[in-house]
Design a protein around this nucleic acid. Structure first.
Lengths: 215, 215
DNA sequence: GTCTATATGTGGATAGAC
DNA sequence: GTCTATCCACATATAGAC
């Protein structure tokens, strides 16, 4: 799962100042893109948040699309790393709880990243077309195959692997993407750490029991 | 759970032509807001999709915000109706599968509505502040109380009710909001009806077993 | 009720002084 | 490398003819 993007970034030597400013801009851009999506975000907003003149954003990233791709690439890198760790040799009773905990931890630590990705998908994923290629389907099938082997080995009940994966994704990312609604429901201004802990416990309990891994 | 909005809509008599055009505009607006969010959507796009001149949109809905509130209000009406049907007297083994099926059916029939709501939440919910008031928290607690009574009555295992609700929401809405990713993973251009059927079965099986309602 | 024309602001992007 | 000034396209919104 690669996501080529450097073509859109300005091609200049990478000095100290450059690295520092790029980081500043990328963080500001992630915030803005998470709230307003690609079309809804203005370069001026990004510049204001980064504390730099608008022209500097264009100096470091050729254009708005280049900036957006750079933000997306960071997120995808972050994403793919975890899910590839599951293997058929593992015991699902050990690695599934770990996976759920990791995903919830992502929602806690990088909510903005999760939201940028969610916004892009909601928009129809026009900037992820090369990411969602045949390769992606193959990758997904190989991940689903792990669950099939666990089922064949009697390590878990025969549930549809694809939909189990969607359940894992949907339930965990919900804590980042819908944080505002959860905050309103629980009457908290920002989600307390315990919320994420209880979420992990509850999800783990229900899913592992539901898949016949625990009883 | 009320969501007052008529103040933002143009206040004129409701003739036949008006009703027809308003419906046309609201449907077009829902499509556009679902893809680009509030800030990212232009009145021109809405007008083009509705097949009307831009000025007519302003004639029927005073301004962009009024149009957006009208779209949001439709969605919220649709939303609240289902979840209120769960009651402590019911048998969760009967009504929970029905609730899951209804929510998945919503994702199938009204994906755009789900996405407009998701976009709004991702944006920080600035236009739902009056909806996410104290009332909302009280409403949520009363819904969670139903699960607590089921637990007290020995009808299900003691899982955290709030997080069970978030699981139900997150897992079901995922099929509308992340349809593009699911399509890519399954190698389908648009999700086949069987996908939603299998989703319902799999979710029902895992969650009911996970909650000790089935074994 | 409908639609053209337009007023006024903000969008992305760049030229060019420093 | 940095930032002001500016170009031009497009945004929301409205005036006013029909």
């Amino acid at each position: 799962m690669q996501f080529e993007v450097d073509a859109h970034r300005a091609d200049r030597p990478a000095g100290r100042i450059r690295q520092q400013n790029e980081k500043l801009i990328l963080e500001a851009a992630e915030q803005e893109f998470a709230r307003h999506g690609f079309k809804g975000t203005s370069m001026q907003q990004v510049a204001d948040r980064a504390g730099l003149p608008k022209a500097n954003i264009h100096y470091y990233f050729n254009n708005k699309l280049g900036l957006y791709y750079a933000v997306l690439a960071n997120i995808i890198d972050l994403w793919d790393s975890t899910f590839n760790e599951l293997s058929a040799d593992d015991d699902p009773a050990v690695v599934l709880p770990r996976y759920i905990a990791t995903k919830i931890e992502f929602s806690r630590k990088y909510p903005q990243a999760s939201r940028v990705f969610a916004m892009e998908i909601l928009s129809g994923g026009p900037h992820l077309s090369q990411y969602f290629q045949q390769d992606y389907r193959d990758w997904f099938r190989s991940r689903a195959a792990v669950f099939e082997q666990w089922i064949a080995a009697g390590k878990m009940k025969a549930v549809d692997p694809a939909h189990l994966i969607f359940l894992l994704w949907g339930a965990t990312q919900h804590y980042a993407d819908f944080a505002v609604q959860i905050e309103a429901a629980l009457g908290q201004q920002t989600l307390a750490p315990e919320v994420f802990d209880t979420a992990t416990e509850t999800l783990t309990e229900i899913i592992l029991t539901g898949c016949g891994i625990r009883r």
